[in-house]
Simulated scan of single mutants.
Amino acid sequence: MSNNCFYCQKNEALDELMIEICELEASTLYLFKEQTYRGRCLVAFNGHKNELFDLTDEERDLFIKDVTRAAKAMKLAFDVNKVNYGAYSDKMPHLHFHLVPKYEDGPGWGGTFEMMPSPKVLLSEEEYTQLIDKVRENL
């Protein structure tokens, strides 16, 4: 765990960006509050590691299983045409994957998703709850 990492601390900075959906085997699944890409989620490894090669074989296998499980749940929940996977962490060194649903008639189709689109698409608490429930139903 790192004192400077909001994924480790699960603090207010994290809460401003995303909502926890659930704990998985090796990670935590979040719904991004910014919803330009309807259903966008993030899977963060439980433990302060930054690279896939920093994980043991068992940790890596469980983490990738979590990423796959979350992506499949998004596909089923939202009828996604393609899930884009983003594994950055230049500025926030903690292993995590952005899972960005792409729709043929939606923003960014055929290109790279925008990390922080503008203007932001924010939802009501009820709408976030509906998205979270759909993901949970399909995990």
Rank of each mutant, 00 (worst) to 15 (best):
D54P: 02
D54K: 04
L55K: 07
L55T: 06
L55N: 05
L55S: 04
L55F: 08
L55G: 02
L55W: 08
T56D: 11
T56G: 11
T56V: 11
T56W: 14
E58Y: 09
E59Q: 15
R60T: 02
R60G: 10
D61P: 10
D61Y: 12
L62I: 06
F63H: 14
F63C: 14
F63D: 09
F63N: 10
I64M: 13
I64N: 08
K65C: 13
D66C: 15
D66L: 15
D66P: 15
D66Y: 15
V67K: 07
T68F: 14
R69M: 11
R69L: 12
R69N: 09
R69W: 07
R69A: 05
R69D: 07
A71D: 02
A71Q: 02
K72Y: 07
M74R: 06
K75S: 09
K75W: 08
K75A: 08
L76H: 13
L76Y: 10
A77H: 01
A77M: 03
F78N: 09
F78P: 10
F78W: 08
F78I: 08
F78H: 11
F78E: 07
D79T: 09
D79I: 10
D79N: 15
V80Q: 03
N81Y: 08
N81R: 11
K82V: 06
K82L: 03
K82C: 04
V83A: 03
N84H: 06
N84I: 04
G86P: 01
G86C: 06
G86K: 03
A87M: 15
A87L: 15
A87D: 11
Y88I: 12
Y88A: 12
Y88C: 11
S89F: 12
S89N: 15
K91N: 06
K91D: 05
K91F: 08
K91H: 07
K91Q: 07
M92K: 14
P93T: 13
P93C: 09
H94K: 02
H94M: 01
L95T: 05
L95I: 14
L95H: 04
H96E: 00
H96N: 01
F97H: 03
H98Q: 10
L99S: 02
L99R: 03
V100N: 00
V100E: 00
P101E: 11
P101M: 13
P101C: 12
K102F: 01
K102H: 02
K102Y: 01
Y103C: 02
Y103M: 03
Y103N: 04
Y103E: 02
Y103I: 01
E104T: 04
E104A: 04
E104K: 03
D105H: 11
D105T: 06
D105V: 05
G106F: 03
G106I: 06
G106P: 05
P107T: 00
P107N: 01
P107L: 00
G108F: 00
G108K: 00
W109N: 01
W109A: 00
W109H: 02
G110S: 07
G110I: 08
G111R: 13
T112W: 12
T112E: 10
F113A: 08
E114T: 09
M115D: 13
M115V: 13
M115R: 15
M116H: 12
M116T: 12
P117N: 11
P117C: 09
S118M: 09
S118C: 10
S118L: 06
S118A: 13
S118R: 07
S118H: 09
P119M: 13
P119S: 15
P119N: 14
P119G: 13
K120A: 10
L122W: 02
L122R: 06
L122D: 04
